[in-house]
Design a protein around this nucleic acid. Structure first.
Length: 117
DNA sequence: ATACTGACTAATC
DNA sequence: TGATTAGCCAGTA
């Protein structure tokens, strides 16, 4: 399986106004242990053109790494699509977390199978 | 081959 | 609750 191609496809499908966690993406790729690799791939730009600002950690905290222009870039991008962050710079996952339906999961798996990735 | 490193996480205290 | 910790694994040197 090509983990990064899978991750890329998942990221592209994160809906506008929603956030996903690294672990969540790894799980959807069929590799629940690879959360760190999702972060690595984003940092290195291995996923191509994906909405990286919609990816946060399992607590809802934004990336602390300086892959964005400045420390407010990601926060501003999220705010511009209606995603608020609290005073500690954390996203409320209950409100803005991406809730993936069973059908979507099946669709992703099928997509991977059909495209051999 | 060995030893870190890190956009991580779940468990534990 | 919040903080620490052990486990994780592809990359890199």
């Amino acid at each position: 399986m090509d983990f990064y191609k899978r991750a890329s496809f998942i990221c592209i499908n994160i809906p506008y106004g929603r956030v996903a966690s690294y672990g969540q993406i790894a799980r959807l790729c069929g590799r629940p242990q690879n959360a760190r690799q999702v972060g690595y791939a984003l940092k290195m730009g291995l996923l191509g053109d994906v909405p990286a600002h919609r990816i946060v950690n399992s607590n809802g905290f934004l990336s602390g790494a300086k892959s964005f222009e400045n420390e407010y870039t990601q926060k501003n991008m999220l705010y511009s699509e209606g995603i608020d962050t609290d005073n500690s710079g954390k996203v409320n996952l209950k409100l803005f977390g991406w809730n993936v339906t069973t059908d979507e999961k099946l669709y992703f798996i099928d997509y991977f199978e059909r495209n051999g990735i």
